[in-house]
Design a protein around this nucleic acid. Sequence first.
DNA 1: ACCTGAACACCGTTCAAGT
DNA 2: ACCTGAACACCGTTCAAGT
Lengths: 207, 207
Amino acid sequence: MELADEQGLAALTMRALAQRLDRKPMAVYHHVRGKEEILDGLVDMVFAQIQDPRPGREWREEMSARCHSARSVLGKHPWVIALMESRTNPGPATIKHHDAVIGTLRQGGFSVALTAHAYALIDSYLYGFAVQEAGLPGEADAVDELAEELMAALPVEQYPHFVELTVEHVLQPGYDFADEFDFGLSLILDGLDARLGTLGPGTPRKR
Amino acid sequence: MELADEQGLAALTMRALAQRLDRKPMAVYHHVRGKEEILDGLVDMVFAQIQDPRPGREWREEMSARCHSARSVLGKHPWVIALMESRTNPGPATIKHHDAVIGTLRQGGFSVALTAHAYALIDSYLYGFAVQEAGLPGEADAVDELAEELMAALPVEQYPHFVELTVEHVLQPGYDFADEFDFGLSLILDGLDARLGTLGPGTPRKR
DNA sequence: ACCTGAACACCGTTCAAGT
DNA sequence: ACCTGAACACCGTTCAAGT
C-alpha cells in the first residue's frame, strides 16, 4: 500500500515489494499465493479504513458521514478504483462494510428493493467521483496549470461552452473540484428521503 | 480496441497489436509515439461513440438519452474506466462531447455554477455505475453463480443484512443490476430540475 | 516512408536448492 | 518454516540497419 500510494500502482511489483521488505523477490511467495492475492488484500485494506455507518441510528447522518469518510479514503488511495473494476473477490472488511451500509438503510425504513436502488446509486456516485478526482493532479495549483495549458492549445471558438465553464468558473480563485462532492451527495440523499415516503409502503419506517 | 474488448486491457500489448496488424512489434512505433499515445487515443475513441446531447433542446430528454448512450458504450468497453483514472490528455472527441453536455445544460437554464455541479454529479454517477458493472461478470447467470458461491463460503449469521439483500432480492429470478441505472438517473435529473428553480436566479431560464 | 532484428532493462512466476 | 539463485516466458522501448 505504501508503494502504491507513493509511486502509483505500476510501481507495486513483486520485486519492488521484496526490496521494501529487505528480502529477495521469491521470499514474498512464501507468504502469498501470487500478486492477485496481494491486490485483493489491498482493496480490502482500503475498505477497512472507511468508517462503517451504524445501523439503527438516523440513516441520513450515518450515510453522509460514511460517504465523506469513503471519499477521503479513496482520495488517499486513488489506485484502488482501477483494482475494484477487475476484482470479484470481496474480503471480510469489504463485506462487513457493505453489511453495515445495507443495515443502516434497512433500519432507516428502506424496503429491500429501495435499499438496492439506494446502494447502487450512492456507491456509483462515490466511485465515479473518485475516478474524476483521480484523473486530476493532486495539487489545486496543478489543476489550474493543466487547464491553462489545455486552453492554450485549444481551438477556443470551437468549444464555447467548455471554454466558458473553464475560464469563468474552474479557473476562478476559489474553485476546488472537491467542493462539488457535497452538492451531489445532498441531492442524492434528499432524493432518497423523498422516495422513502412514497415507495415500499409495506415496510414500517423507524426514525 | 478490438484486443481490449476481446481479451481485456492486459492483452493489449505492443507485441500483440503488431501481430494483429501482421507486422513486427517495432513497426507500430513508426505510426505512434508510444503506448501512452495509443491509450489516450482509445479513450477518445470511446467518447466519440457516445451520443452528444443537442444544446437548445429540452435538457432533461437530451441528458437522459446521452446518459443511456454513455452507459451502453461504457458497458461495451469496461476497460476504459481504468484508463480514465490515469489520463489527463483529453482528445478532440472528448472535448467536443463535454462541450455539448455543458452547452445543453447552459441553454437549458443552468447557471455556470449549477452546470459545474450538475456535470460533476452526472458523470460521477455514470463512471461509478460503470465501475460497479465492470466488477460483475458479463452474463446475468454468472452473477447468480458468483453470489451463490460467495454465500456458501460466508459466515451467514455475521452479515445478516448483506445476506438478506442478496437472497431476497439480488438472487430473485427477475433481478438485473443494470436495471438499477434508471432509478438513480431519474432521481438525479429530478433533483437537478428542482434546483434549477431555486438556484442561480441571475440566469434566465430558457425552456 | 516504412519496416525489421537484436538488444536492454524490466515483469510475474516455476522449480530446485539451501538453512 | 523461511529464504534464495537461476531460469522461463513475457513486457515497452532504443538503436542501428535494411528496402
